[in-house]
Design a protein around this nucleic acid. Structure first.
Length: 278
DNA sequence: ATAGTCACCTGAGCGC
DNA sequence: TGCGCTCAGGTGACTA
């Protein structure tokens, strides 16, 4: 479900509601997420110092460590009053000292929740992550350098979290459309100018999506249970055979690495005939 | 090292 | 109404 904008939406939504509160208890109703959920008693009594996002992880920083939450394909968080009856697929409750509950729901169970003592970036899930796409160091030159000699499709390349984090299937498709790059072009053959353009649109599309509260396809909701509105801004994702919003050519769809890949055959002509030397 | 595939789940939507 | 099939926002593990 959530890519970077959706996790950012959740993070910004709950931060003002939980920061400074104390976790007084927890209920692990169903520990079966991607990895079994374990919340040690040492967590109880600790204050939530800060809430932020790294890649697609939501981090609740406590006094001695962090709770690390991933939403997989279908996870969501809600803040509910205590004694709110749990529903189907409600896996974990974190009980706060003001009587509110942070409730994690995840039907498909691809998400996860870990407790990690110390700095969260040392956790094995976070340790090898690439750069944040909204950070200053994310530039065309950065991508061009890492793409040297790489033969995989540029779409797969920008979805690799060791290169750059947070770009999932929706936004990878969208960004490549705006940059006018064919998703199937080998990463090593995209020109420097192509990567400059790609970076520009990664920033633009992600920031725009964050402003609109993310993309709701079927079930993404923020902490209030409200959907995101970026879907109406999509140019290619989910628009197979519909006319391109820019040139009216029917959008094509194919499978690449088991993921639906959408593109406009006219607007995305770049085949990557880079003249740059590797 | 790199590129591609598989696996992990539930639920929605579709054709019959 | 029900059944069976396909597909879905992610990503670590595994195979060549």
């Amino acid at each position: 479900m959530p890519e970077l904008p959706e996790v950012e939406t959740i993070s910004r939504g709950i931060a003002p509601l939980v920061t400074g509160k104390c976790i007084v208890g927890a209920i692990v109703r169903d520990p079966r997420l991607r990895w079994p959920v374990e919340i040690p008693e040492s967590v109880f009594g600790q204050q939530i110092v800060s809430v932020y996002r790294r890649a697609k992880y939501l981090l609740l920083r406590l006094e001695t460590g962090s709770l690390i939450v991933h939403f997989g394909m279908s996870g969501s968080l809600r803040i509910v009053p205590e004694a709110t009856a749990p529903g189907k697929h409600d896996h974990v409750d974190l009980e706060l000292d003001d009587g509110q509950i942070v409730r994690l729901n995840d039907p498909r169970r691809f998400g996860s929740l870990h407790w990690h003592e110390g700095a969260p970036e040392t956790h094995w899930l976070l340790a090898k992550l690439g750069i944040e796409p909204l950070a200053a160091g994310f530039t065309g030159a950065y991508l061009k350098g890492l793409a040297r000699g790489r033969r995989l499709a540029v779409k797969s390349f920008i979805m690799d979290g060791r290169i750059v984090v947070g770009i999932g299937n929706i936004y990878a498709n969208e960004v490549l459309f705006h940059a006018g790059i064919r998703p199937s072009v080998r990463a090593g053959r995209v020109t420097a100018a192509g990567y400059d353009s790609l970076v520009h649109f990664v920033r633009k599309v992600l920031q725009e999506a964050i402003l609109m509260g993310g993309t709701t396809l079927r079930d993404f909701v923020n902490q209030d249970g409200r959907p995101g509105y970026f879907k109406q801004s999509l140019y290619v994702y989910g628009r197979a055979n519909l006319p391109c919003r820019r040139c009216a050519t029917p959008i094509k769809v194919l499978k690449s690495t088991q993921r639906a890949t959408y593109f406009c055959p006219k607007c995305q002509r770049t085949q990557g005939f880079s003249r740059d030397k590797w």
